[in-house]
Design a binder for these strands. Structure first.
Length: 425
RNA sequence: GGCCCCAUCGUCUAGCCUGGUCUAGGACGUAUGGUUCUCAGCCAUAAGACACCGGUUCAAAUCCGGUUGGGGCUACCA
C-alpha cells in the first residue's frame, strides 16, 4: 500500500511545476493503489495566506487531482516538532544554541540514496553543516518538520522536484537519528522556460490559474504535463488521466529537465476542444464569457457557433474574439481586410446586388444562400470568391472564419442584409 | 568556488538498463503541395538530432572515463 503526498506552501498560486509534482504523486497513488495526501507547509506564518491555500486547492481540484484524506497543516503541529527536537537533544544527537535546536551531523561518512528516477546518489556528510531543527523564533526548519510529518503520515514514496535532492541526505540523517526507516525517494527534474532558465511569464505563465483563465482545458494541461518528463514508451500523445493511470510506470520517468513549450500545449488544448461535443463545450464557453465580462449568448445560437468554431480554436478565450460578430454589432473590424475587400466601387455593387438576390430567397438555409451566390457568380461570369470575400468582410468584419454560408444562416436574413447594405453604402 | 543532477531534431520524446533489428522512429513547430470561399481542420511531402574527445568491443546513440555545456543546492526560505 503506497502512501504519497503533495506538500505545497501557501505562499503563492499553484505553480505549473508544482502541479506536475502533484500529478505524478497522484498517478503513483492511483496506479499502485494507495493514498495521495495533501500537507500544507505553512510554517512561515508571515508569507502564508489563506487565499493562496484556497486557490491552490481549487486549482488541484480543477486539474482533477483530488486528495484522499483531510489535509494536515504544519502550523498546527509546532508542539510536536519541538517535542521531537527535545528528544534528540536528550539523546545527545542534537544541542541547543539559545532558543534554537540544532542537529549534530556526523562528519566523515557517506549517505547513499537509491533514487527511483536517478538511481544511486552518494553524498559525504563533510559537505553537510549541522542542521537547525527549531529556529530561534520557535518555528521548525523545513527539513526537520518534513521528516517528522512524512514519518507521522507513514509516507512510503516521496516524489518531488530535483531542487530537493540536496535536502535528501539531511533528511535521511534525521530518519536515522529518529530510528525510522526512510521512505523511497524519486526526484524529477524541473521544468524550464524556453531559453533554459527558470519558467517565467514569457513562457506562457507560471500559475495554473493563468492557464485556466486563458481557456485551457484541465485535461489538456494535465496531458501536456504528463508528457513532460514521462512517456508511455511509444508514440502516444493524447492520453487522458484514466489511461495514464493504467500505463504509468515511474521507471519511465526521465532524469532530464524539460523546457515548457506553450505551442505544443496550445496544440494539445485544440485537440481536446475539437474532440468535445459542442454541447459539452457550452458551459465552458459560457464561463469564459462571464469571466471576460461579456453577456452570455443565447443557447441555441451559441451551440451552432460552437459547432462551427471548435475545430479552429486553440483556447476558449480565442472563441470569444473570433466569434464576436455573432453576438452583437460592436464586433472588431479588420481594417486591412476592409481596405482590400470593401473599398472599391465594384465590391459595393456586388454586395448590393447579392443583398437584392438574398432578399428574394424563401428560406435562409445555408444551401439556399450558397445557391444564390453560385447562380449570381455564373450569371456575372465571376468567381464565387469575388462575392464571398466582400460578403464575409461585410457581415463579420473579418477575412477569416467558418464557412460563409453557415455563418450567414446563423446570423439570420435581417442581420445579414442590414450589414451588407451598410457596407455597400 | 564546493556538492549533486543531466546531455538524441528548434521543442517534447522513442530507442539506452538487456550493445548489432537505428542509413535513429513519432509528436509540436516550420516549409511546400492537395482539398476549399478565407482561416482552421484533414491528407501528403520536406528540412531537421545521437554535444565533444578518448576507451572497451568484431560491433556503441546504447557500456566506461574525461571535456564542454545546462540545471539544482550551498539559509535559523520552503
Amino acid at each position: 500500500m503506497a502512501r504519497v503526498r503533495f506538500a505545497p506552501s501557501p505562499t503563492g498560486y499553484l505553480h505549473i511545476g508544482s502541479a506536475r509534482t502533484a500529478l505524478f504523486n497522484w498517478l503513483y497513488a492511483h496506479r499502485y493503489g494507495g493514498a495521495y495526501i495533501l500537507r500544507i507547509e505553512d510554517t512561515d506564518k508571515v508569507r502564508s495566506e489563506k487565499r493562496f491555500l484556497e486557490e491552490i486547492m481549487e486549482s488541484l481540484k480543477w486539474l482533477g487531482l483530488d486528495w484522499d484524506e483531510e489535509p494536515i497543516k504544519q502550523s498546527e503541529r509546532f508542539d510536536i516538532y519541538r517535542k521531537a527536537a527535545e528528544d534528540l537533544v536528550n539523546k545527545g544527537k542534537a544541542y541547543r544554541e539559545g532558543e534554537a535546536y540544532i542537529f549534530k551531523v556526523d562528519k566523515g561518512r557517506s549517505v547513499e540514496i537509491d533514487d527511483m528516477i536517478h538511481g544511486k546518489i552518494t553524498f559525504n556528510t563533510d559537505d553537510i553543516k549541522d542542521q537547525v531543527m527549531i529556529k530561534s523564533d520557535g518555528s521548525p526548519a523545513y527539513n526537520f518538520c518534513c521528516v517528522i510529518d512524512d514519518a507521522f503520515l507513514k509516507i512510503t514514496h516521496i516524489i518531488r522536484g530535483d531542487d530537493h535532492v540536496s535536502n535528501t541526505p539531511k533528511q535521511v540523517l534525521f530518519y536515522e537519528a529518529l530510528g525510522i526507516m526512510p521512505p523511497k525517494f524519486g526526484h524529477m527534474p524541473l521544468i524550464m522556460g524556453q531559453d533554459g532558465s527558470k519558467l517565467s511569464k514569457r513562457d506562457g505563465g507560471t500559475a495554473v490559474e493563468e492557464y485556466r483563465r486563458e481557456g485551457f482545458l484541465p485535461e489538456a494541461l494535465v496531458n501536456y504535463l504528463l508528457l513532460l518528463g514521462w512517456s508511455p514508451g511509444g508514440d502516444r500523445e493524447i492520453m487522458p488521466l484514466d489511461e495514464a493511470v493504467k500505463a504509468f510506470d515511474i521507471n519511465h520517468m526521465k532524469g532530464v529537465q524539460a523546457k515548457f513549450d506553450i505551442q505544443k500545449l496550445r496544440w494539445m488544448n485544440g485537440e481536446y476542444i475539437m474532440a468535445k461535443k459542442a454541447e459539452a463545450l457550452m458551459p465552458l464557453i459560457k464561463k469564459q464569457f462571464l469571466a471576460s465580462g461579456k453577456a452570455v449568448p443565447e443557447d441555441n445560437i451559441l451551440l451552432k457557433v460552437a459547432e462551427l468554431y471548435k475545430a479552429r480554436i486553440k483556447t476558449l478565450s480565442e472563441f470569444i474574439t473570433l466569434t464576436d460578430c455573432f453576438f452583437g454589432d460592436d464586433y472588431a473590424i479588420d481594417e486591412k481586410g476592409r481596405e482590400k475587400h470593401l473599398s472599391s466601387a465594384e465590391s459595393k455593387t456586388i454586395l448590393s446586388e447579392f443583398a437584392d438576390r438574398l432578399e428574394k430567397t424563401g428560406d435562409f438555409a445555408h444551401k439556399t444562400i450558397e445557391d444564390a451566390c453560385r447562380i449570381m457568380a455564373e450569371e456575372k461570369k465571376m468567381k464565387a470568391g469575388t462575392i464571398i470575400h466582400p460578403t464575409r468582410m461585410a457581415i463579420s468584419g473579418k477575412t477569416q472564419g467558418a464557412g460563409l454560408f453557415e455563418m450567414m444562416e446563423i446570423l439570420g436574413k435581417d442581420k445579414v442584409i442590414e450589414r451588407m447594405r451598410k457596407a455597400a453604402s
